[in-house]
């Protein structure tokens, strides 16, 4: 069969595959998951960018029918699309935890997720534990972290501190994590990170019916409306179990609350394409929200049993 080359970029590797012309998104996605040995596939997706808008490969649509650049290798990023409500309970496999750790760490360092200075230092210390193992002053000599990107620039710029002083601060915490294996250190990292307000939120620039600029946030728990100046605390939240229906028509998006006394919330997003993405993220997040509130599937039960062994 005729094939074309795809390049898959994960948080820590790049791979190339020969993809058959007729393959659907699912065929490629499954191949990537198998190659990675990843079984908790439901959190992930293959992302591409089209005209500055993020898009995700649809499982039931042919890879080549997507609006991707046909120049080979066709490139996709294998990333977490949905986030667990509780990393420790839901992320079973080490590979899943590791990919989440890498993705969330990057978001924090890139300041996509706001993280206060103290928490940033603590997170850095767990990242160091994960990478270097137990602290040993005879091995980890002054300057051993000099080449590492460990803190968001905003945090570094807040204080009059030299790199040596930062290293000292981080190392003081790092020394406390003695005995933690890599996977444990990464899980401790995620447990702190998941409490940050912006963790797991997909933000979209929207305008309400009066034309006021706002942000819509989609996450594991529901939909949130923010003032663009404050991405931390929503002005309004619509938890999944208080929503009756969501829909879009062209650039308009409607959230219909369950309670008829609460006003329907309508807004406009910049493009029809964005509304499609919002709806996709809503369906996926709500699906996981419901599944969490049911008993574990047989597959997850088996994985948890294996992980315990």
């Amino acid at each position: 069969p005729k094939t074309f080359t795809v390049r898959i970029v994960t948080m820590d590797a790049e791979m190339e595959f020969n993809c058959e012309m007729k393959w659907k998104g699912k065929d490629l996605f499954d191949l990537v998951c198998r190659t990675l040995g990843l079984r908790e596939t439901w959190f992930f997706g293959l992302q591409y960018t089209i005209k500055d808008t993020v898009a995700w490969l649809k499982m039931d649509k042919k890879v080549l029918d997507h609006d991707v650049s046909k120049e080979e290798p066709v490139t996709f990023h294998f990333l977490a699309k949905f986030y667990p409500e509780n990393a420790e309970e839901e992320l079973v496999q080490e590979i899943t935890q590791h990919l989440f750790f890498l993705q969330v760490k990057k978001q924090i360092l890139d300041e996509k997720i706001y993280c206060p200075p103290e928490a940033s230092v603590l997170l850095a210390s767990y990242a160091v534990q994960a990478k270097y193992g137990d602290y040993d002053p005879s091995v980890h000599k002054r300057g051993f972290l000099a080449q590492e990107e460990l803190l968001p620039k905003r945090v570094i710029n807040l204080y009059q501190m030299t790199p040596e002083m930062w290293e000292e601060r981080i190392t003081a915490w790092y020394a406390e994590h003695r005995g933690r294996a890599r996977d444990e250190a990464e899980m401790e990292y995620l447990k702190i990170a998941q409490d940050l307000e912006m963790y797991g939120v997909n933000y979209f620039a929207i305008r309400n019916k009066k034309g006021t600029e706002l942000l819509l946030g989609v996450d594991a728990l529901g939909l949130h409306i923010y003032d663009p100046e404050n991405r931390l605390t929503p002005k309004i939240s619509f938890p999944w179990n208080e929503i009756r229906n969501i829909s879009y028509s062209d650039k308009e998006f409607t959230i219909k609350p369950l309670d008829k006394k609460i006003d329907v919330f309508k807004f406009n997003s910049s493009k029809l394409r964005v509304n499609k993405l919002i709806l996709q993220l809503c369906i996926g997040n709500h699906d996981l929200f419901m599944r969490r509130r049911k008993a574990d599937s047989l597959e997850v039960q088996q994985m948890k049993a294996q992980a315990r062994e």
Binding site: D65, W240, N241, I243, R244, N245, I246, S247, Y248, S249, D250, L258, L272, N275, K276, L279, C282, I283, H286, D287, M290, K294
Partner: peptide, 20 residues
């Protein structure tokens, strides 16, 4: 392909469909 210009998702209905 003509773009689908409308979409809807019944959040409540999805709950109801969920086997208990």
């Amino acid at each position: 392909l003509r773009q689908q210009r409308m979409g809807t998702y019944g959040v409540r209905a999805a709950w109801r469909r969920l086997p208990q």
